[in-house]
Design a protein around this nucleic acid. Structure first.
Lengths: 142, 142
DNA sequence: GCGAAACGTAATCTCATCAGTTACAGTTTA
DNA sequence: TAAACTGTAACTGATGAGATTACGTTTCGC
């Protein structure tokens, strides 16, 4: 696969927590399901926690829990929590203002890229974690 | 700015070609407007050319032209031409099939990421290069 | 023809980002 | 107090992109 597994792994984490219910899941256990290192999981849990989606209990018998029921968490919540928020991807160097295109293009690009991104987020914003968990269960059975 | 300027620079290139009309624009001239190296422009022109959006004339007095009028080029055409097409970003390592989540999550993720991406592309697909050029002109005047 | 001007592309450099890993300090429970 | 966690910092290796240099090829004007 390519890059930025963060979203995929964060959804995976959230699904595991949703299925764990009240039982705190340890980063090591989640890492076993994702098939990666526990620190990678803890880093993402930290981001999810800062976004208020997850609660973590420290100390022995600790672990993580969803902070609210999966019916009230959207994939957009998760994406916003773990993806770097760096405006639209424009030119590295500012374009040449002596050229009409160089002078006028950036605001136009920002508008259109923002509109496209809003459309993508609209889909994620209407997809609930609970729905994803239901589908995962169906896939795992089939 | 962050990453993947390719789309932004490719739209910039297309806008310059649209404003040049019948006059071939050299990679050096375009590079002056974008404020980068001519080889960077030629690489993107090569991708646009493979997608049939641009024609290049070699030799002295050469340069590049749009292959069709800007009313018949969408930003999605440009995005598809210059962006690597690497399916949705999933796990690096396949998840653990011994866990129900690990076993079932990937097809679910593929479906939702593809739906979100399709929504983004729908916006780009309805935005014409000619509209972008009109807006750039308005910005450059204001 | 010849040379200048341009494209097309390969090779290299640098830089940023990311996943993975080790290490360790702080926290909680039994 | 010991064991089992979390929370970070620091380092490594891989990957990808933009910038640059270099060179072969094509074409026009003289």
């Amino acid at each position: 696969m390519s890059k930025n597994c963060r979203f995929a792994v964060a959804v995976h984490i959230a699904a595991v927590l949703a299925l764990s219910g009240d039982e705190p899941a340890t980063s090591e256990w989640i890492a076993g399901s994702v098939n990666t290192n526990p620190v990678v999981i803890r880093r993402l849990l930290s981001a999810l926690s800062k976004a208020g989606l997850v609660r973590s209990l420290r100390g022995s018998a600790g672990g993580s829990l969803l902070a609210r029921p999966p019916e009230r968490i959207t994939l957009l919540d998760i994406a916003r929590a773990v993806e770097e928020d760096e405006g639209p991807a424009l030119h590295h160097q500012p374009p040449n203002p002596a050229c009409p295109v160089g002078r006028g293009i950036q605001p136009v690009l920002v508008r259109v890229i923002d509109r496209a991104e809003a459309a993508r987020e609209a889909v994620l914003g209407t997809t609930l974690l609970s729905e994803v968990v239901t589908q995962i269960r169906a896939e795992a059975m089939g």
